[in-house]
Design a protein around this nucleic acid. Structure first.
Lengths: 152, 152
DNA sequence: CTTTTAGTTCTTTAATTAGAGAACCAAAAA
DNA sequence: TTTTTGGTTCTCTAATTAAAGAACTAAAAG
């Protein structure tokens, strides 16, 4: 159970943690996710995570369950071992990317509804709003093409 | 100064406001930005914003300054009129989009640093991490192409 | 000058978030 | 059956965020 982090690793966890806080994760979730990206061992147990990050059990539990819900991490078990081994789902980025593209649809629907309720005055503004919705449609389609062409 | 919103407009402001809270704006900022997207009049003064949204002066002031800083809104003045007329910078989405693409560079730099500090064990994980950084590079370039091709 | 306008800043409060620590619990081990 | 393991849940507190309301201010109007 000796899973010591180097100083560089600790620093990377903090930097990457901060970056992921900026992407909407709580401090503890961000650090757990960072740890699972940075630690040499890619499968860590609850207690290894807790120890490495010096978190309480509750903070560890909540962070892990949050990341599981967001599908950012997963876990596996080993026969005859009750512990769960958590890992980063970094390989899932294609799916995550697709999901974020699809998430744009609702936002764009809203923009279109807004446009449909605008008066005819402010032609210029309406044109810009229309262009934005058209661009989002276009961008979604092109992005999906982009990702499909990504097989180097 | 009679700038009454219809019920539909009020609802749209709430929906769009919530959507923008999800994109990182505070409730008041999100609603100010929504108002400037939805109101018939695209140029509103401080007091018109305050009244329409039933906000306090401080909340209005902070929300406006926050949006100005984020470059999501701008204002113009009129000769012989001390008031500022605020408007949504919706037409600026191309620039905003470019900025968000460029924002990925730092994140990717971090991922590359993380990769460079990983041991050679866990080949599969390292490959996935490498793929992700390569995809981000590729995606940035392609996205910029996409936006440049957007001149219909 | 004095007042009004167009905001800004300060103070306070309410609400939310984050996390510690302890109590708890179910399954497995002893 | 009791203890240990691997967590989860509950309670409490500290910190942060959001916004109201009042006091303030600089520039323009009267």
């Amino acid at each position: 159970m000796e899973n010591k982090l180097t100083n560089i690793q600790k620093e990377l966890i903090e930097s990457f943690g901060v970056a992921q806080e900026g992407m909407g994760l709580s401090p503890a979730s961000a650090r757990v996710n960072a740890l699972l990206t940075i630690a040499d061992n890619v499968e860590l147990t609850f207690d290894e995570i807790r120890e490495s990050l010096e978190l309480s059990k509750s903070a560890t539990s909540n962070a892990i369950n949050n990341l599981l819900m967001l599908n950012r991490i997963g876990y596996k078990t080993k026969p005859g071992d009750r512990k769960r081994y958590f890992y980063s789902k970094i390989g899932q980025w294609q799916q995550a990317f697709m999901d974020s593209m699809n998430g744009l649809t609702d936002y764009n629907k809203l923009l279109k509804t807004i446009l449909s309720h605008r008066t005819k005055e402010n032609k210029e503004f309406n044109i810009q709003l229309k262009e934005l919705t058209e661009f989002i449609d276009y961008y979604q389609k092109e992005s999906i093409k982009i990702i499909k062409n990504w097989k180097k």
